[in-house]
Amino acid sequence: MIREAEKSDAARIAEIYNYYVENSFVTFEVDRVSEDEMAKRIQGCLESDLPWLVAEHKRSVIGYCYASPWKGRCAYRYSVESTVYLDISLTSKGWGTKLYNELLARLKKRGIHVVISGIALPNKASVALHEKFGMEKVAHFKEVGRKFERWIDVGYWQCLI
């Protein structure tokens, strides 16, 4: 089931995200995110009238996705940045596709025109997921992040909806 995130989901969402913080370079955060901080992030997204969705399977949150404002200037109000994370044990099982299907449908209903996603590279699975939805690579920034004693590139994909 895909549904809107609730404050009570913050602990589980933080747990999913913190795996990536501690074990991968797909996020550039280096410190764990607390339940309270995650609840604030969810609330901020919802206050921007943008969706934060969770995938629930067997009564447990197994992944999430959301859209956040692309930039703060008013002319960017029809553009958002999308993010998706899944429980590491449930990747490559179609949940990312289910989450993105629902996210894009809700964004379209809200009148959003552009969806942009940043991907730490290399990341074949994330690139494939985003390109499945018609996103095209529009930028590549070399060595803009440093984590785990290595430089990391970031590519940006976008689609018009």
Rank of each mutant, 00 (worst) to 15 (best):
F141L: 15
V84W: 09
K98V: 05
G94L: 02
K98L: 13
G145D: 12
M135W: 03
G94Y: 08
I88E: 13
T91N: 05
S117E: 14
S117F: 02
S117I: 15
A125V: 01
E102R: 14
S126N: 05
G145E: 09
I88T: 08
G134C: 10
G111F: 07
N123L: 04
F141P: 10
G94T: 08
M135H: 06
Y100M: 15
F133A: 09
K124H: 12
F141Q: 11
L90E: 04
V115D: 00
K137F: 01
E136W: 03
I116S: 07
N101R: 15
E102Q: 14
R110G: 04
V114H: 11
I88A: 10
G96P: 00
L107G: 07
I88F: 08
K137D: 04
L104M: 08
E143R: 13
K109S: 09
I88C: 07
T97K: 15
N101D: 14
I119T: 06
F133S: 03
G111C: 05
S117G: 13
L129M: 10
H113E: 07
F133V: 07
L104F: 15
G134Q: 01
G118D: 04
V144Q: 03
G94I: 07
T97S: 14
I119D: 01
L86G: 11
E143C: 10
M135A: 04
A139I: 11
V115S: 03
